[in-house]
Design a protein around this nucleic acid. Structure first.
Lengths: 198, 198
DNA sequence: GTCACAATCTTGACGGTGTCAAGATTTTCG
DNA sequence: CGAAAATCTTGACACCGTCAAGATTGTGAC
C-alpha cells in the first residue's frame, strides 16, 4: 500500500471513484476530470498516477477482473465433487456479474481497452481467469461430460458461449420471444447443457 | 432516394463517410465534426439529418447489419440441401465480416448504441438477421443434427456461441496457446460442431 | 537536521468534441 | 410568386484529454 502524500493513496481513490461513476453515470459519463473532482483533486492530478485515460480504464478493468475471478472462484469451489454443477454455477456467476456490474463489464470487454500488452496486471488476472475455466473444463472432461478435445480449445468454446449470450443480452439483441420464456441465466444454462455429453 | 438540395444526399454521404473514417481511424476517430468536414460541409450541418451523434452511429450500424445480412445470405443460400454446411458456412461468414469490418462490427455491438427502440430500421434488419439464424437452425433440427428445442432458443445459443468467440477474439482475449493452433474461423467451426448431434 | 531530489498536485492553456441558437440560403408547393 | 419548410452556416457554450510550468510536500543522503 502506497504511503500518504498530499492526498493519500490517490491512485486507488481514482480507481474506486471511477467504478462508482461508471455504475452511476455509465460509460459515457466517465471522464478523467470527473474522476479527479470526485476525489477532490485538480483536473490533471490523475496524470501523476496514470499516463492517460486508457491507463485508468485499464486499472478499472483490472479491478473488475479481480472481482469477477473471485466470484467465479466462490461459485465453483463448493462443488469440487460435481463437475457439471461447477460448470453451470460458474456460468451463472458470470451472468450475475455482468448484470450487477453492467458498465464495468462493458469497459472490460467493449474494446475501450486496445493494446493490453501494456497493462501487465490486467493480462495476468485475465489469463488467470481463463486458467480457471480451463481447470473446470478439464474436470468435466475427466468426468466424461465434456468431449475429449484440447482443454484450452474447449474452454474457449465454453467461455465464448457464455460471453456471447451475455454480450448480446447487454446489447438488447436477445429476441423478445426468447426473453418471455427464460431469463439470461436460464438461457446460458440451456446453452451450456447443449455442450454437455448426455 | 432523397432529392438534391445544397449538397445533394448529404445524409447518405455522412453515413458513407462515417464508415470510411471508422475503417481508417477506428472508433475513437469517429466524430461528427470530422464526418461533416469529410463531406465538405459545416460542423453542424449533420444536425439537419441526425438529431445527435448516437443517431448517426445507429445509421452506420444499420448499414453494417444490412451488409452482414447480405453476406450471411450469400454464404448460406448455396447449401440449401446441406444444413450442416449452412450452419458452418454462415458462422464462418460471420467471422469474416467481423475481421474485415472490425470497427463497424464493434460499433454494432459495443454498447455505443443504447436505446435501440428509437431506431426502427436498425431493429428491423437486426431481427431479420436473427430470423435467418432461426431458419438455418430449424432446417438443422429437421435434419436431426441439432437438438429438438425451441428454435429461437437454439438460435440464441448458436448466435451467442459464434458471437462470443468473435467478441473475445477482437478483445485479444483468446489464449495464445489456442491461437497458435487454430485461427478464429477454425475455433468457431470447432465450437459449432460441439453443438451438433454426431 | 538540512538540503537536494523526486514524487505529487495545481494552475493555466491548447485543440478537439457534441450540441444548441440564430440566421442565411435554397427548395418545395400552394 | 410568395410563404413555408428543409437545408446549411456561423458562432457560441461547456466539456473533454493532454501538456507545460510551477508550487508543494515527502524522502533519503550526508
Amino acid at each position: 500500500m502506497p504511503k500518504k502524500y498530499h492526498h493519500g493513496d490517490l491512485k486507488n481513490a481514482l480507481i474506486q471513484g471511477g467504478v462508482e461513476i461508471l455504475a452511476k453515470e455509465g460509460v459515457d459519463g466517465l471522464s478523467l476530470r470527473k474522476v479527479a473532482q470526485h476525489a477532490g483533486v485538480s483536473h490533471s492530478a490523475p496524470y501523476a498516477h496514470f499516463p492517460d485515460k486508457q491507463s485508468l480504464i485499464a486499472a478499472i478493468s483490472t479491478e473488475g477482473f479481480i472481482q469477477l475471478y473471485a466470484e467465479l472462484e466462490a461459485a465453483v469451489s463448493p462443488y469440487s465433487k460435481n463437475p457439471k454443477k461447477q460448470l453451470i454455477e460458474g456460468a451463472k456467476a458470470y451472468v450475475r456479474f455482468a448484470e450487477k456490474n453492467t458498465d464495468t463489464f462493458k469497459i472490460m470487454f467493449s474494446g475501450v481497452l486496445e493494446k493490453e500488452k501494456d497493462y501487465p496486471s490486467f493480462v495476468e488476472i485475465s489469463s488467470k481467469t481463463f486458467k480457471l475455466v480451463v481447470e473446470v473444463v478439464q474436470t468435466c472432461q475427466n468426468a466424461g461430460i465434456l468431449p475429449t478435445a484440447p482443454a484450452d480449445l474447449m474452454a474457449v468454446s465454453v467461455w465464448g458461449q457464455v460471453h456471447g449470450i451475455v454480450a448480446l443480452a447487454l446489447e438488447g439483441q436477445i429476441s423478445h420471444t426468447v426473453l418471455e420464456k427464460k431469463n439470461i441465466e436460464n438461457i446460458v444454462t440451456f446453452a451450456i447443457e447443449q455442450l454437455l455429453i448426455t
